[in-house]
Design a protein around this nucleic acid. Structure first.
Lengths: 195, 195
DNA sequence: GTCTATACAAGGATAGAC
DNA sequence: GTCTATCCTTGTATAGAC
């Protein structure tokens, strides 16, 4: 007899988060029901509550995991000794990393308003920490006379916003390869903050 | 010409759209109920249906009106004869116009996925027409040797994405005036696409 | 751990009185 | 044009059987 019931806790949890991530990214947190998520995993809605206390937790856990992964990955990225090389590393890393996890990135940027105040502050702190990484590079470059920006904070936000725009149009099957895209954006960023 | 008792159709319609715009921008389309909108206007939910056939229509009408206003306003904007001046005009116009109508802009960018396919195509066409305005300027500049961008389409998208980023952090009460912000972004854009 | 069943609230939308 | 009342669906979350 087919085993329709039984213990699958070790794989069901990740599958639920994966389904939630995909659905939240595609339709938006508020537009996705617990029943939809359960259906994607082949469960009944009630079973989800063995893995999450509520829908909000599902969202915040996805966002938290994404932000922590992002910061960890950037920390592990090899960085050249010069600021120009660091900036290039950031640009290429950001595009590559975010395109590889577009669902998580979409959620992290679009669903902030669906977080409770406490959760919002937590995610916001992570986001700021990431922005600070880029701003640090810009500050160093300005000090060394390699970069010329009137306001490093705004420049950092502007660069990240520009890079995030890639998410809205890039397709794997498109006319440009990932590296070509990286290079085009790096060209613009380099000139935008250059002397 | 006597109105029927309690007739307010001439002002109620706009008030409903204004309330919907504010609520959709703040909480997201899917998270806002018809009862909430009605309550903001001082009506019962059922009364809304004298002004809109359904919730989706409310959304698409807001987005359509915004996109058409945006294109009309840019068309009416005075433009210098040189491409560099045109690009500056676009940057300053875009920042100024979008900050003045941040609710409408937020909705136009965040709620695309809540449109039915037909409505999506319609709004998407407007958005592309606006992007084409900027790309036209960039193309002219490249032809004249004033700008140097490897791909005018991507450059246009990158510039707009960068400028839209202002919406996420600008506050009227902040340390920078609108004109200062315009100038900072114009400086970066000018350099990013310059020779 | 998952199921079925269900409690209970909230949603979109309509009908008919005024 | 708006209200009240209501229909019907869908939503989150829980309880208890297996």
């Amino acid at each position: 007899m087919a085993r329709t019931q039984g213990s699958h806790s070790d794989i069901t949890g990740p599958r639920i988060r994966a389904a939630a991530q995909e659905l939240f990214a595609r339709h938006g947190f508020a537009a996705v029901s617990m029943r939809q998520i359960a259906s994607h995993v082949g469960l009944q809605a009630g079973a989800l509550y063995n893995y999450t206390s509520d829908k909000q937790s599902l969202l915040v856990e996805l966002m938290q995991a994404h932000m922590e992964d992002l910061l960890t990955a950037w920390a592990a990225e090899p960085k050249p000794g010069d600021v120009m090389g660091c900036l290039e590393a950031f640009v290429r890393f950001h595009i590559r990393y975010n395109l590889q996890r577009s669902d998580a990135v979409f959620i992290a940027y679009m669903e902030l308003r669906n977080l409770t105040p406490d959760n919002f502050r937590q995610i916001e702190a992570h986001r700021r920490a990431y922005e600070d990484q880029l701003e640090g590079v810009l500050k160093d470059g300005v000090e060394q006379g390699v970069f010329d920006v009137p306001d490093t904070k705004i420049a950092a936000l502007a660069v990240i916003a520009m890079l995030n725009g890639v998410l809205t149009w890039y397709r794997d099957s498109g006319r440009l390869s990932l590296v070509e895209v990286e290079t085009i954006y790096w060209d613009m960023v380099r000139k935008a903050v250059g002397v």
